[in-house]
């Protein structure tokens, strides 16, 4: 027997519980997604979606748990916090436009939040989802830490809400600009308000790629939608 075969299982166990595994896999999945996106030019190949699909497949095939993956994955996920802080930069650059659009911004955020919460509960109900599922869906338009906290507060499944939140963001990143073109919304400020209010950080990253103005409005509305959702979700669930 070769030493390689002898230590195969040990090495695999070391690898899958080492931070090196999760970090490398995350970056590799994302790099593959960016390459595919670049190569095909198709918005369906959103790097974040490709990365998630590839990593989930690797974890399933290798029988690696999500907790083991997070040993390394959480090093990458950690930077989401500082990156959220970094969204102040486009806001700072575009502040002269933002400050003059206070009424459209605030109205857009409130309308978007109310429609998102109410329709999430009603549509899930109509499609046969039970109350727990409706409550899990309700806060999905807000940024992940907010939707997660709200979900546990009102009796949803917090971790499933986090996943739905990210899926809503990916949907917005893929379909958002296309939908905006279809309904004739071309003003980058209005586009940013819609992206930030309903598709949080993932939509904001896409908005930033379109233009700095759109990104700035999106970043601000993501923050405002977090406030609006925190206030409105507990009220709405009492009524519907």
């Amino acid at each position: 027997m070769t030493p390689l075969a002898l230590h195969g299982q040990e090495t695999w166990d070391w690898l899958t519980t080492s931070p090196l595994f999760g970090i490398t896999l995350t970056l590799a999945g994302y790099a593959l997604g960016r390459w595919l996106h670049h190569r095909t030019g198709s918005p369906v190949f959103q790097p974040v979606l490709v990365a998630i699909v590839v990593i989930v497949a690797v974890l399933k095939l290798g029988d690696v748990s999500y907790a083991d993956y997070l040993t390394g994955g959480s090093y990458v996920g950690f930077w989401l916090g500082p990156a959220t802080v970094a969204l102040a930069l486009p806001l700072h650059h575009e502040w002269h436009l933002v400050r003059r659009a206070a009424v459209p911004i605030l109205t857009g955020v409130v309308v978007g939040t109310v429609v998102s919460i109410c329709s999430a509960i009603l549509v899930t109900d109509l499609a046969g989802g039970n109350r727990e599922l409706q409550l899990t869906m309700a806060p999905k338009a807000a940024t992940t830490p907010v939707s997660l906290a709200l979900s546990s507060q009102i009796g949803g499944i917090p971790a499933l809400t986090a996943v739905l939140t990210i899926l809503a963001g990916i949907t917005g990143a893929i379909l958002g600009p296309w939908v905006l073109d279809r309904i004739g919304v071309r003003d980058p400020r209005a586009r940013g308000i819609a992206m930030g209010s309903v598709t949080h950080g993932i939509g904001t990253a896409r908005a930033l790629a379109e233009s700095r103005t759109e990104g700035a409005f999106s970043a601000l509305c993501m923050g405002l939608a977090a406030v609006a959702t925190s206030v409105l979700v507990p009220i709405v669930v009492l009524w519907i």
Binding site: Y69, L70, G73, G77, A159, V163, I166, A173, L208
Partner: peptide
């Protein structure tokens, strides 16, 4: 920015 959402999405 998108890279940073991947670990939570893998959930």
């Amino acid at each position: 920015l998108h890279l940073l959402f991947v670990p939570a999405g893998v959930g």
